[in-house]
Amino acid sequence: MWGLLGLHDIKQRYRRSSLGPFWLTLSMAIMIGTMGMLYARLFGQNVSEYLPFLAVGLLVWTFMSTAVNELCLSFIAADTIVKQIKLPLTVHVARVVWRNVLILAHNAVILVPIALWSGKATPLGIVTALVGVFFLAVTCLFLGLILGILCARFRDIPQIIASLTQIVFFLTPILWKPEVIADRIWLVGFNPIFHYIELVRAPILQGHVPVQSWIICAAISLGLALVATLLLARFGRRVAYWL
């Protein structure tokens, strides 16, 4: 059910444009192209090294930040349905996550020429990256349940999350490589978002599996799953009253 609903969302959004969701991809490609050129120059880095780094990082980041912000509203946006039909709350969350995975899949087209050009991607690396994306999506599902329930109750959380994502974007190595702040590398190590991005970025760019990041992310996601389960059991039934 969530699959069909998510697909419907995508179709709806691009109904009146002939390029459809590829509009997003096109603007993304232009942004990565221009930013890649500019920042490679600013940071004094090799374009052929910097551009793939930026492209993968920015795509994964866009997926995560859009998903998180939309997930805050997953129940609020579906309030007429929540108040009318008895459906598991997970359906509404999965719909939003799936919609964003589909958009990420469209955007991933950009990576094909970049991967060919950089020439470091291995089949194993690509498979690992896909597993990483799947893992990200599952994590978003848990996070979405938590955020959805909290946001239905406290309506100022979406704004707080929106400002936080802005800050996190600059604190996380997406525009800049971790090596740039080699003397304060712990800043990167303690940033969970960095590890989640690495799950996808490292296998594509360096062709290796980031074991340390996997361990950290697995622990965090497990924690989120636990919190989500508890919240759902405790407050899931109250959500309809809060909307």
Binding site: M1, L4, L5, H8, Q12, R15, T80, I81, Q84, I85, L87
Partner: peptide
């Protein structure tokens, strides 16, 4: 209770029937 539940103004009649049936 609410006839127009889950109807989407931008979607066609057929799509809306499908949408409701999915729900």
């Amino acid at each position: 209770l609410d006839l127009s539940l889950g109807m989407d103004l931008e979607a066609t009649g057929y799509e809306n029937i499908r949408l409701r049936a999915i729900l």
